[in-house]
Write a protein that binds this DNA or RNA. Structure first.
Length: 426
RNA sequence: GGAGAAGUGACCGAGCCGGCUGAAGGUGCUCGCCUGCUAAGCGAGUGCACGGGGAAACUUGUGCCGAGGGUUCGAAUCCCUCCUUCUCCGCCA
């Protein structure tokens, strides 16, 4: 959510930012309603003041044995009027809130303008894609052939776009989760969390998934509960409605959770394999920071995610998302894209974003500087560290052998019980 | 699922036969004083949101005692609904 004062004071700037995003937004009716709000508020406060002082007077008069009836009569109508205005004010406030809560975050100055992912800016490339001297397979075929993925039977259990890992596959997925969590907690200073996988409407609204993107979520029938699409949602909201001590910042959390996405509107895309699933595993990193450091923290967040790929020796590149590809809550996002030999291209495996105070304002996450009177909103950041299913897929494709087996990356061997190669388990 | 109890400021905890309580008292915290050090002691301060005035320090208005309604001139205090927590019983990983 943007600061309403900023919209009023820097309308040009806000409008430019929205245009850069390609969003057509009409601020004129908003400004008019905002004026109404102020008018109502002024009158209400005036009347309430009158009521408060007169009520005190009535108490005094009654105590003194005087006749308070005329004042009581008068206040009766005043209260009536307050009630009416209250209703008007409530309606106007609801309209303003609906408007504010549906506005996306403003893009940072250095975010390139563009319409879609083809216009993202390449920042760096790491590692050289391996040259294969045999006919390579994609990860779905490798996994199915080895008997460590059973996507066919998963369809029977749930439907399309659900994973079923078996044997060394299940072990590899678990190994990756543990490997990532261990690095983030012991080397990068994150505190591990294990949050609910189901959250309420307020929490979903805090990070920006609601109210605009309800169709992307799984909702529990008959409950105001949603399956989380990412652990960013519960983790960022941990300190909602709280005022933190400046000294505790930055807060750094990492969490493994499954993620659930309806993938509405992506029919036909990435239908094969683990790339796009209704349920997938992810290790997430979340930071709650002071506004002074959030962009530095974004750089280190990105570096923390890159570390995982470097240790796994998987080639990748980093892009800055252009405005057309930028998420609703983010002001700037780096995507890490891993090399997928089976598809002969780089695919997103992590997304690292600075949301500034956009989410903090929605969820009311504040901090107080030492000696300061007023609390300020924190900045929040989040990044995948990494999407586990896609990492699994990348390992299969990059580490496949001519005989159909898959070599285990050195860093994962201890997490695989010493196993160095995944062989046919059929 | 059944029966009962409770939700007050950073925390503990009064108030709850309606008005002088934004809220006693205590703890904690901040600043100042005192002190050889530590402890103790003394003094002052210590919520959030929105609005008015002021360059600022600050000042002033309104709202907030789980949430939302209602009664009343006036509600932390009375009534209704909901949420949450705790205890006991049942069930259960």
């Amino acid at each position: 959510m943007l600061d309403i004062k900023r919209i009023k004071n820097d309308l040009d700037l806000v409008q430019k930012g929205m245009e850069k995003r390609g969003a057509q937004i009409d601020f004129s009716s908003f400004l008019k309603i905002e004026e109404d709000r102020k008018k109502f508020l002024l009158e209400i406060e005036e009347l309430r003041h009158q009521r408060n002082t007169t009520s005190d007077e009535i108490a005094r008069m009654k105590k003194a044995g005087e006749d308070a009836q005329p004042s009581i009569e008068k206040m009766r109508s005043v209260s009536e009027r307050i009630k009416e205005l209250d209703k008007d004010l409530g309606e106007v406030e609801a309209q303003i809130n609906d408007f504010l809560i549906s506005l996306p975050n403003l893009p940072a100055d250095d975010v390139p303008k563009g319409k879609d992912d083809t216009e993202n800016r390449l920042e760096k490339t790491w590692g050289d894609p391996r040259q294969f001297d045999f006919k390579i397979k994609d990860h779905a075929d490798i996994g199915e052939d080895l008997g460590i993925l059973d996507l066919g039977r998963a369809t029977k259990l749930a439907g399309a776009r659900f994973p079923l890992y078996m044997g060394a596959g299940a072990r590899l997925e678990r190994a990756l989760i543990n490997f990532m969590l261990d690095i983030h907690t012991t080397e990068h200073g994150y505190k591990e969390a294990l949050p609910p996988f189901i959250v309420n409407r307020t929490t979903m609204t805090g990070t920006g998934q609601l109210p605009k993107f309800e169709e992307d979520l799984f909702k529990l029938d008959g409950w105001d509960y949603y399956l989380i699409p990412t652990s960013e949602v519960p983790i960022t909201n941990i300190y909602a409605k709280e005022i933190l001590d400046e000294a505790v910042l930055p807060l750094k959390f990492t969490a493994y959770t499954p993620c659930f996405r309806s993938e509405a509107g992506s029919y036909g895309r990435d239908t094969k394999g683990l790339i796009r699933q209704h349920q997938f595993n992810k290790v997430e990193m979340v930071k709650v920071t002071s506004p002074d450091t959030s962009f530095d923290e974004l750089e280190s967040l990105l570096a923390n995610a890159e570390t995982i790929l470097q240790r796994l020796e998987l080639p990748y590149r980093v892009v800055t998302l252009c405005t057309g590809d930028l998420g609703f809550s983010a002001t700037k996002t780096y995507d890490i894209e891993v090399w997928m030999p089976g598809q002969d291209k780089y695919r997103e495996i992590s997304s690292c974003s600075n949301c500034l105070d956009f989410q903090a304002r929605r969820a009311s996450i504040k901090f107080k500087r030492k000696g300061a009177k007023k609390p300020e909103f924190c900045h929040t950041l989040n990044g995948s560290g990494l999407a586990v299913g896609r990492t699994f897929a990348a390992i299969l494709e990059n580490y496949q052998q001519a005989d159909g087996t898959v070599t285990v990356p050195d860093a994962l061997v201890p997490y695989m019980g010493g196993r160095t190669v995944i062989e046919n388990e059929r």
